[in-house]
Amino acid sequence: MRVGLRIPPCAPTGQIAELARHAEDAGFDEVWFPDSQLLWRDVFAVAAAAAAATSRVTLGTAVTNFVTRHPAVVASAARTVAELAPGRFLLGVGVGDSAVGPVGLRQSTGAELRAGMAVVRDLLGGDPVDFGTVRSRLRDPSPVEIHLAASGPRNLRLAGELADGAILLSGVAPAPLAAAITKVREGAGSRDVRITVSAYCRVTDDVPRAARELKPICARIAQNGGAPFLALAGVHVDVPSHLPGVYPDLVHAEDWNAAVQACDPYVSDEAATTFAREFCLYGTAEQIAERLATVREAGAHAVFLQHVGSYDLPHTLMTDIGTQVLPILRTRADVA
């Protein structure tokens, strides 16, 4: 199973590219960059810089969208980065989330995702596309794999039906993960679709203490309709649809301590600890390696790890995973 690292483009582009190179040197297989035009640097510019700084690691967007970016613009940008990183660029797309909310737009519907992916795939494949009254094509096309981020049943099936890969936002808890993979496979039928699991991660020997930082993540999942998935793993929370005073949202809060405090009445310390142990990869290096093995056995082909925080770089996570967890995984693979 391939192991990736999520790097928010929250620093000058040169620093992001340098960290991508360090992740490659540390043994990571993939590096993923999120896209939110007001929060971070432009995702395709950052991916291009990372392509020039690396030679082996796969690069991906996690994820861009078809609301703030027209599908034709997405296709052109993806083709350009793929030229700079031949065979090692993945186009991750999704509903928009933090890219659309701060500019007053709504997330993509399933129908809009379907239409956007069709346009991008046709353009990258060299086929003409009807844009209202005109029919156009992309010069110098180059196929790029499209991976759809999904959490709900309909988009999970859509990922299986149309995408080359599904990026699961369901965490690593066995029951929700199995349910999500089943939905992807229902949509895929006989097609092979790569399964990538996104997971918050921290190497620690004190999970209850570290878990407090996850309260906004847990609350946001509940707000987005994920309470039933949380309940499957024994995490029971009841969170209002909006918590005032957190900008721009719970997952990307500029003041993380304030976001944690805003969630305290709705996410108990016990619930946060269970969330950390079940949905996330919080624990010792040995425990994380064991959980990753379970994720692989569940059917995942890849996982990308992320730290809590949108405006600092994951230096600690990269170092801890690179020096403590990846050696365990390599030893087990050699033995197998």
Rank of each mutant, 00 (worst) to 15 (best):
A188S: 06
S190Y: 13
G165Y: 12
S190C: 10
S108A: 14
V184G: 00
G116A: 12
A115P: 01
R209G: 06
V134S: 01
T133N: 02
S98D: 04
L148A: 07
N224I: 07
S170W: 15
E161V: 10
G96K: 09
I221K: 00
L123W: 13
A199C: 04
L105Y: 10
A211I: 12
T196V: 15
L162H: 02
V95T: 03
A118W: 07
L156P: 04
L177P: 03
A166R: 04
L105Q: 13
L148G: 03
A166Y: 13
E213R: 14
P102E: 06
D164S: 03
P153E: 02
T182V: 04
K215E: 06
T109A: 04
A150D: 04
D130G: 11
R157H: 13
D205F: 08
A180P: 07
S108P: 07
A118N: 01
L123S: 03
A178E: 11
K215Y: 12
A199K: 05
G101N: 08
V119N: 06
V103N: 03
E186M: 01
A159E: 01
V197K: 00
A180C: 10
K183T: 05
G116D: 07
A111M: 02
R154I: 04
T133M: 13
G171C: 05
R185F: 10
R137A: 10
T196C: 01
V100M: 14
P174D: 01
E213I: 12
R135T: 14
R154G: 03
E186Y: 05
C201A: 02
Q107V: 03
R135M: 08
G187D: 09
Q223K: 06
E112H: 08
G125W: 15
G101W: 15
I181F: 02
N224Y: 10
T109I: 12
G226N: 07
C218W: 07
I221V: 00
E213W: 13
T182E: 04
G125A: 11
L177K: 05
K183M: 09
V119Y: 09
D205T: 11
L169V: 06
I195L: 05
R121T: 11
A166I: 15
S98M: 05
D97W: 14
P143G: 03
R157D: 02
D206R: 11
A118T: 06
R191V: 05
V197L: 07
A178V: 15
H147D: 02
L123D: 00
P216C: 13
V197M: 07
R212Q: 09
G110L: 08
A180S: 13
S142W: 15
G116Y: 13
Y200D: 03
V129I: 07
D164Y: 10
D122E: 09
A166F: 15
S98T: 06
V120D: 04
V100P: 04
C218S: 00
L158H: 05
R212Y: 09
R185G: 03
S170Y: 12
L156W: 13
A175V: 15
R212I: 14
K183H: 13
L148Y: 15
G171V: 13
L123H: 08
A159F: 03
Q107F: 02
V100R: 15
G187L: 09
G225Y: 15
P216R: 15
V95P: 00
R137D: 00
T182M: 00
L162I: 07
G171M: 05
L123Y: 10
E213A: 07
M117W: 07
G132R: 12
S190T: 14
V129Y: 05
E186D: 00
V184E: 00
G125C: 11
R209E: 11
A219Y: 01
P176K: 05
